[in-house]
């Protein structure tokens, strides 16, 4: 146990050291200033990754609010608003969703969602921030649902007797006791969903259109950092464009680490 923990720790530390090592050549002030712009035109000397960093954040920050209410709704359905049989069925379906590879969501969305958006809004090609955000919302929905569900499961037995003694119905128990008691689960679900949305590659790559720009509307094309790495990794490995990928990797690593720490903090009850 301890050995495997040690090994995992070493791998993560090595990964960080590796990223930092490859980022070192980017550290002179001029290169760094170039890196922190929104100007990505590698053949004209523009290596800014800011548009992509913003793209990642925008995508994740829009996917989470899309998925969260649905996740809460599904959990309420499973824990009291729906009939037990239907509830079990829904829970199984959500569990099944966690196993669907993201490329499948991406593929289906390319053929169904994208033409739909194009026809509905008459603006752009359909490959857009909105398409990718909807795809990501579907992706993170089961993660968030199961997180909230497990919190409900902990909260429910604790108040079952009290609620019964007060003569509350299942719906009243859920709304007035279980939901307020599960605040920590909601927060954890938000953070976890955000982490998954930031980290996913296939859905942004296939749906967001990948234009390296700051989008002016949800129907515009944008590029996420993960998709950016996937697109650029095959370029000439001695170019600055290639090196800038390590900065992108470091950014993602930091974001994910931040999410993990936040999650620990929430689960530890707000104490560091």
């Amino acid at each position: 146990m301890r050995l495997s923990a040690l090994l995992t720790g070493c791998v993560v530390a090595a990964l960080l050291a590796f990223l930092v090592h490859f980022c070192l050549p980017l550290l002179d002030p001029k290169t760094l200033a170039g890196l922190l712009t929104a100007d990505w035109r590698p053949f004209h000397g523009g290596f800014g990754i800011l548009a992509m960093a913003a793209g990642s954040l925008l995508l994740a920050l829009s996917a989470v609010p899309l998925a969260f209410p649905v996740a809460v709704g599904v959990c309420c359905f499973i824990h009291g608003l729906g009939s037990p049989r239907a509830a079990r069925l829904v829970l199984r379906a959500v569990q099944l969703m966690t196993g669907v590879p993201t490329v499948v969501y991406g593929f289906v969305a390319v053929f169904v969602l994208v033409p739909l958006l194009r026809a509905a809004f008459h603006h752009g090609s359909g490959f857009s921030w909105l398409a990718a955000a909807l795809g990501l919302a579907v992706l993170i929905l089961p993660t968030m649902t199961l997180m909230i569900h497990s919190q409900f499961q902990v909260a429910e037995p604790r108040i079952r007797l009290t609620a019964a003694a007060l003569g509350l119905t299942r719906a009243q128990r859920l709304l007035h006791l279980v939901v307020p008691l599960s605040r920590r689960g909601f927060a954890a679900a938000l953070v976890l969903g955000f982490g998954r949305a930031v980290g996913d590659t296939m859905i942004p790559l296939m749906l967001s259109g990948n234009a390296a720009q700051l989008p002016g509307s949800p129907l515009d094309s944008l590029r996420a950092l993960t998709a950016h790495i996937a697109l650029v990794v095959a370029t000439d490995s001695h170019s600055l464009a290639y090196l800038s990928l390590f900065a992108a990797g470091l950014f993602l690593f930091t974001a994910t680490a931040g999410v993990t720490i936040a999650l620990r903090w929430i689960q530890g009850g707000g104490r560091p």
Binding site: R41, N210, S221
Partner: peptide, 26 residues
Amino acid sequence: DEASGTREVYWKKLLKKGTIAASANV
């Protein structure tokens, strides 16, 4: 994407190394 050989020839021989609008889907 910038790593594409197809893009390189199209960009060099047809677009004469001109700009490609940033809004283009990749």
